[in-house]
Simulated scan of single mutants.
Amino acid sequence: MRVSLTLTATSQVHIDDEDTSVTLRATPTGEATTASTVPIPADNPTDWVPDSTQDTTASAQTEPGVESPYEDPTEEGPVREGMYGPMHWLDDRHVTALLAPYICEGWDTGDYARFADLSGEEARRLRTLLPPLARDDRQNNAPRISDLLRAATRIDGLTLEGYVIRAPRWDERVSIDTVCVPESAIIAHTGRPIDDASCPSYEHWLTLAQVLGLGADAVPPDEMRFLVRDASSARWWWAWWD
């Protein structure tokens, strides 16, 4: 003898206005009722359809350090830090204003500009305006900017050249890559005459390093020349680090 049994399942949906939840009840014939409660948004609960594939118990989060796509980009956030300080520190510390008269014509491209003929009191002021970390800046193997600025305050006629990196670049800074010293100032510091060589030698570099007050570990420049910069016959010692 065969016995056939047919089970009929019905589902009921009840909306409770107080806790804004949907209660799904599956009631198979002859079995106990089971229920599961799924939260729904309170803004428009009647238009929401539960998605069975979505984990509604987990809250949306972004990974640490990853900007949320839902953040308003117009809202003011934390100050962006650059290599040597907060963004626009050159303006805030008045370095931009100090160097403005020394910017080379035709060498200002916005975030990069070259300057020349910085010397004396202005070199001393620049050193005081730079943040501590920025005073250790070096153009590759060039001497530290603080050492060159200090030399410019001591040696009459010494001039410095370099470049400025401006915001919004992260590596906002002042770098010095060139020094030019009148030979008369070198003679005054060494107390001995200079030979008439047409091209500088390694010995000339050692003399220049001594005059600049650099240590024994100072790296020679990539190029060094003797120059005549005006109508006089006076020579200048020019050194440049790439």
Rank of each mutant, 00 (worst) to 15 (best):
214 L>V: 10
207 T>K: 09
150 R>P: 00
121 E>F: 08
233 S>G: 15
61 Q>Y: 06
226 F>T: 01
173 R>I: 00
54 Q>Y: 06
238 W>F: 15
121 E>C: 08
41 P>D: 09
77 G>I: 04
189 H>W: 03
174 V>D: 01
98 L>F: 10
10 T>A: 14
151 A>N: 11
189 H>M: 06
168 P>Y: 13
106 G>L: 09
66 V>I: 13
45 P>K: 08
86 P>E: 14
116 A>G: 04
11 S>W: 10
18 E>K: 05
164 V>W: 01
139 Q>E: 13
145 I>S: 05
27 T>E: 04
122 E>W: 11
8 T>W: 09
166 R>S: 06
1 M>I: 10
124 R>N: 05
156 D>E: 15
201 S>F: 02
209 A>T: 07
214 L>G: 02
33 T>M: 07
84 Y>N: 09
82 G>H: 03
191 G>E: 10
10 T>M: 10
201 S>H: 03
219 V>G: 00
153 T>S: 15
88 H>L: 13
23 T>C: 03
76 E>Y: 02
94 H>L: 11
185 A>V: 04
228 V>P: 00
158 L>H: 01
152 A>N: 07
159 T>F: 06
88 H>Q: 10
189 H>C: 06
235 R>E: 07
163 Y>M: 05
236 W>E: 13
47 D>E: 13
1 M>L: 12
196 D>W: 06
